[in-house]
Amino acid sequence: MSDHREIAVTVNGRRYREAASDRMLLSDFLRQRLGLTGTHVGCEHGVCGSCTVHLEGAAVRSCLLLAAQADGTELRTVEGLASGDRLHPLQEAFREHFALQCGFCTPGILMAALDFLAHNPTPTRREIAEMLSGHLCRCTGYAPIIDAIAAVAGTGTTPEVTS
C-alpha cells in the first residue's frame, strides 16, 4: 500500500531526486536517501528539536513532515551553514561560548535560532530562552547557548542567513 514516489528537492542549493515511500519522514529522507546526516533524529515526535531544518525559509521539524510533502520545495540543513572551511557566525559563536558538548542537539538549535533571529534580530535573553524551550540539550545547561545566540543577535550577521 505504501507506494514509492520520486521526490525532487533542493537542499542547500543542490538539487536531488530520490525515491521515498509515502510514509518516509523528511528527517529519514535527508539522512538515509540524501546522506545529509547533520540533521539529527532524537524523539521523532516533535519534542526534542534536533531534526529542525528550514523548509522554504521557515524552521520546521523534519520528523513531523513526510518526505512526500517536501516534494518540489527548497530546504536548508546545517550542512548549508558554513562556507567551505569558514563557519557561519552563529556556529563560530557556539564554539566561542562553549555552547555545545556532545553536539547532538546543535544542528537543530542552529537552524531554529537562525529563523528566530530573522524575525527577532535583537531578542532579550528571556526570549531566547523561550525559543530554546523547543530544544532539548542534556549537556550544556542552556546558558552558554543563550550566550552564543545573544552574541550574534543584532550584529548584522542575521539577514544573510535567511534562506
Binding site: G46, G49, T52, A58, A59, V60, R61, L64, L65, A112, D115, F116, E130, M131, S133, G134
Partner: peptide
C-alpha cells in the same frame, strides 16, 4: 499564541 507549542512548531 506564544504558548502554542514552540517557536518552530508554530511555523507549521
Amino acid at each position: 499564541a506564544p504558548y502554542i507549542g514552540h517557536f518552530v512548531t508554530r511555523n507549521r
